[in-house]
Design a binder for these strands. Structure first.
Length: 441
RNA sequence: CGGGCAGUAGCGCAGCCUGGUAGCGCACUACACUGGGGGUGUAGGGGUCGUGGGUUCGAAUCCCGCCUGCCCGACCA
């Protein structure tokens, strides 16, 4: 993509409403624009990252055996009356009346609807287990939206819903999501730590929040630092097999948010392993048994011919929120530092002097990299060098490839690693080889 | 939902106290010089002063209502 033909409204000054770093950087890097309190337009650069994050989420959901569908944003109030939540849900639910005076709502979540879909078609235990998920925009009319996309009113969320015959098998479904989450967040360059969460009236230990550590996090967390070094399950993980060993390994070291914190247990840890920090919740997995299947009559027939309500769980990932989380966890004074897997482009190609000898070199580099599957943002604008460098650092592409008259005198171009700041001069051919190896190797 | 603050050009702000027909920096346009870390100069364009009403010869400025947004707290993915 040529920057001269792209839409990247970079801001030099920081809009005053942005308090935390991810919000500031997303506005400055031209990723989002606020349209109302807690409601954002996704500008091209932000949209690209959002798509990449969503893709990783989908790939790992699919790998774990979940099946994707898409439910609407607008729902009927009647469905929610069945579960009793139409009355129970407070002002956070955006209620709408259509032209026929029918009561509708903009969905804050989808348990009712997925249960309705399930009960309409599934009758037999033979159709289980089943895990259906979707990635859709939701709306919660938060009293006080803030922190940019970290806590907006409109947000993109992945929600999976599992259906099983009994609690034992629901636990297996839970474990599959647990492991899928470990992989999902790791692929985005994040260390997400599963922490025991409040299960409410249902009880048991089947609820975890996945938290990433960041100084601007919303909640205080306490953990045994050994959890930070646990291995991430590989691509070859068998999701049809027993995953309890992995889950056990990840749930044994102490890790809790302040709500679930056990001061005595934490204090009993050796001093050098205790970590207290702040964290951002990016995912939540939850077993809730037959709460909705009871209320909404979602039953299957067992092998014995008895009808029983299905055991359900729900598993959320805040897709749009993750962008804020990733930036909170990965930035410096100059701007964002994207992990390669979610970077809007892989390489920022900087032409120091457009309209001159640099042009053919840049054109050739651009073509070679694109042909090798490397995504390049080519800054071909006729502006000062400083603007180009500062802009590239701000938007945080993993690599910069700098072509200037000075280097070309000796037949060299320069590569800069955004994260380490290392710069290296080499021939254009070597630069292409190195970038392709680093990005595609 | 309690407490506090703010709406003046795309962004950041001054002007308001003491009423007289709107200004600064950045950004934008044109040209020139530049071009290795947000460069320099010259010349320009752009504003229903959030909104409705009131006071006044005259309101960005004073008074009242409303809307919108932000910050702290409670709440929340």
């Amino acid at each position: 993509m040529r920057l001269s033909r792209y839409f990247l409204p970079i801001l030099k000054e920081t809009p005053k409403e942005a308090e935390i770093v991810s919000h500031r950087l997303m506005l400055r890097a031209g990723m989002i624009r606020q349209q109302s309190a807690g409601i954002y337009a996704w500008l091209p650069l932000g949209h690209r990252v959002l798509g990449k994050v969503q893709k990783i989420v989908e790939e790992e959901q699919n790998r774990s055996g979940a099946v994707q569908l898409l439910m609407p944003t607008i729902q009927s109030a009647d469905l929610w009356r069945e579960s009793g939540r139409y009355e129970a849900y407070g002002k956070e639910m955006l209620r709408i009346v259509d032209r026929h005076d029918r009561e509708m709502l903009y969905g804050p979540t989808n348990e009712e609807m997925i249960t309705d879909i399930f009960r309409s078609y599934v009758r037999s235990y033979k159709d289980l287990p089943l895990n259906l998920y979707h990635v859709q925009w939701k709306f919660r009319d938060e009293v006080r939206p803030r922190f940019g996309v970290m806590r907006g009113r409109e947000f993109l969320m992945k929600d999976a819903y599992s259906f099983d015959l009994d609690q034992e098998r629901a636990r297996e479904a839970y474990n599959r999501m647990f492991v899928a989450y470990l992989r999902t967040f790791a692929r985005m360059g994040l260390k997400a730590i599963p922490m025991k969460a409040d299960t409410g009236p249902i009880g048991g230990d089947l609820s975890h929040e996945f938290i990433i550590l960041a100084s601007t996090g919303e909640s205080e967390v306490f953990l045994d630092k050994s959890i930070l070094d646990l291995p991430i399950p590989g691509e070859d993980t068998d999701f049809n097999g027993d995953l309890s060993e992995i889950v056990d390994a990840w749930t044994t070291p102490y890790a809790a948010t302040d709500e679930m914190h056990d001061e005595a247990a934490f204090e009993a840890l050796p001093e050098e392993t205790k970590v207290s920090a702040r964290g951002i919740e990016v995912g939540h997995i939850f077993y809730f048994g037959t709460k909705y299947s009871d209320a909404m009559n979602a039953k299957v027939t067992t092998a014995e011919g008895v009808d029983i309500p299905v055991h359900m769980g729900s598993y959320g990932i805040g897709v749009s929120r993750l962008l804020g989380g990733i930036i909170e966890a990965s930035h410096d004074d100059d701007g964002i530092i994207w992990p390669t897997e979610v970077a809007p482009f892989h390489v920022g190609l900087i032409n120091m002097k457009p309209g001159d000898e640099c042009d053919p070199v840049c054109d050739s580099l651009y073509e070679q990299l694109e042909n090798a599957g490397v995504e390049v943002l080519y800054d071909d604008r006729k502006t000062s060098a400083g603007q180009k460098f500062a802009g590239m650092d701000l938007i945080g592409l993993p690599w910069q490839l700098i072509v200037g008259p000075r280097g070309l005198k000796s037949g060299e171009v320069e590569i800069k690693n955004r994260k380490t700041g290392e710069r290296e001069s080499m021939s254009p051919e070597a630069a292409v080889a190195k970038l392709v190896a680093a990005l595609k190797g």
